[in-house]
């Protein structure tokens, strides 16, 4: 009789221990389910709001337009400098007063560099179109930002060097006994000044292109 009573007590205790485990298991399952659904809903919501492809396509289109304007500006600068020459109305048999861009090495390099930059910008238009068609592609964007940076440097070098010479042509320098030449060749100096301004505009546009490319490269999570 005592042995039977002890067995019944043990049987009663075991079910009590097992039931809490079942409850714990069910509790965990409930905790896991909602976060997954929540994440999926939020992902869809973010995609609808941000639409990274659409935003980057807009940036790519703006990039294309800026690139076209920069190409035109750079070529205009080169053409303006190359076609700026002036011959004074009086001359003698042995001496002719004429000013041309080839008289100054800095102006010659200006024409060459701006022609190169204009050519590069024209050739880079197809790459810009690729960025419009495939907004999320990285390699063409990286290629553009690299070349744009180098071309911006080149354009600024040509523009700044020519600006220094044009400034000297206008004002001269008493310390070094360099006389101004713009008092005689007024049209020539105006033409060169216009070309230098156009080149600086092209350089500024290239700077914006570099920054635009950086924004387009930015990681979207």
């Amino acid at each position: 009789m005592d042995i039977e009573k002890a067995g019944s007590r043990r049987e009663e205790e075991e079910p009590i221990v097992q039931r809490p485990k079942l409850d714990k298991g069910k509790g965990k399952a409930h905790v896991f389910a909602p976060p997954m659904n929540y994440n999926r809903i939020m992902d869809k919501h973010k995609q609808e709001k941000m639409s990274p492809a659409g935003w980057k396509r807009g940036v790519a289109i703006f990039d294309f337009v800026l690139r076209l304007i920069a190409a035109i500006t750079a070529m205009a600068a080169a053409a303006k400098m190359a076609t700026t020459e002036e011959t004074l109305p009086f001359f003698t048999q042995f001496l002719q007063f004429q000013a041309d861009y080839t008289d100054l090495p800095t102006m010659s390099s200006f024409v060459i560099v701006n022609s190169i930059v204009g050519g590069y910008l024209t050739l880079s238009l197809p790459f810009s179109i690729v960025c419009i068609l495939r907004p999320l592609a990285v390699p063409p964007r990286l290629f553009l930002i690299l070349c744009d940076t180098v071309m911006m440097g080149l354009t600024l070098m040509a523009a700044s060097a020519s600006a220094a010479i044009v400034y000297l042509a206008h004002n001269g320098n008493s310390s070094s006994n360099w006389l101004p030449v713009c008092q005689q060749f007024g049209d020539f100096c105006q033409g060169t000044s216009g070309a230098v301004v156009a080149s600086f505009i092209a350089a500024t546009l290239l700077m914006f292109l570099v920054i635009l490319s950086a924004f387009a490269l930015k990681r979207t999570t």
């Binding site: 440097g153 600024l156 040509a158 523009a159 700044s160 000297l168």
Partner: peptide, 21 residues
Amino acid sequence: TGVLALNTAAASSAAAISYLA
């Protein structure tokens, strides 16, 4: 990018004058 532009402008203009000198 902005400071690179300033640096390039200063270097190139000084180079032009230095060459002229």
